[in-house]
Simulated scan of single mutants.
Amino acid sequence: MKALAARRHHRFAPMLLLLLALLVTGGLYAALEPSSANATAATPSANDVDSGTKLFKANCATCHGMNAQGTSAAPSLIGVGAASVDFQVSTGRMPAEANGPQVIAKAPQFDAKQTAQLAAYVASLGAGPAVPTADQVDGSKGDAANGMALFRTNCAMCHNAVGAGGALSAGKYAPALWDTKPTAIYEAMGTGPQSMPVFNDANLTPKEKRDVIAYVEAQRNGSPGGAELGSLGPVSEGVWVWVLGMGLLIGCAVWIGAKSS
């Protein structure tokens, strides 16, 4: 008993107890931690990176450089992340057909596997936004009402209040979002392609991004209020009222004047 008591009063006993408590706490946290909303896609294999390297050098290095360091024709891709590559390649924007005010979306040149390999190679060059998981882009789990508030605060000035798109300066434009895949919407928010600003997780959390996707998807079912009038909001509605309403009033005034005379 005296030996046990002596060990309990040893000068290193508090340190050992603290270390034991930290180990137990860490183990319990790791075992009980809920799945994170920020979970990223599966880590690519070395074979994916190797295959992506070959695809990049055969199809992308002419503009972006052999090591993706950038050239006078195209920017560096070091540190842009897998999400940026997945967005640009899966939407057909890259490889670009020609220089212009804005890179146009078209049918993709690479299939899903090749796109993932290109993304894996670029991601290996430096940390950047990862491709979102299926859960992160599942609009059915989002709050469309909150997404509406977020969209109209951050996106409507370019993409229109319901995601119909709109014109920008210098020949650029914000595309319509109704046919855009949820993954591409999420990646665009996180990477800021072309004229679009970057909305990182400090600006819009992953949950808020999913809410935005829920709102955009809700607009694909048509207007519940009747004719959409091009979904251009108060501009088209005002023109319709002015042309039809005021035209009808003027016509009535002319008819009344003609009858009275």
Rank of each mutant, 00 (worst) to 15 (best):
K207R: 13
F110N: 06
A21S: 13
V89Y: 05
G171L: 00
L229V: 07
T62D: 12
T53F: 03
N38E: 13
Y29H: 10
K209M: 13
I213V: 12
L22T: 11
R7A: 15
A188M: 13
S236I: 00
S124F: 07
P44M: 08
D48T: 06
L28Y: 13
L17C: 12
F110T: 00
G192L: 02
A214Y: 08
A202G: 06
A61T: 01
Q136M: 15
Q109P: 03
A3H: 08
R93V: 14
I250H: 02
G251W: 10
S36T: 15
A83P: 03
A120D: 08
H159T: 04
S51P: 00
A74W: 04
V89G: 06
I250A: 14
A83I: 05
E217R: 07
A42L: 01
Y215C: 03
C252Y: 13
A105D: 04
E228D: 08
L28S: 11
G139I: 10
A127E: 12
I78C: 08
A30Q: 14
K54R: 15
P34G: 05
K57G: 11
A105S: 15
A98V: 12
A144N: 01
D135T: 14
A174H: 08
I78K: 13
A30S: 13
P129K: 01
L177C: 06
P75M: 10
L244H: 10
G70Y: 06
L249H: 02
A58N: 10
A214I: 06
A116N: 12
S124Y: 09
E97D: 15
Q219S: 10
P34Y: 04
A5E: 12
T191Q: 08
A116S: 12
S76D: 06
N160L: 07
V162M: 05
S236M: 12
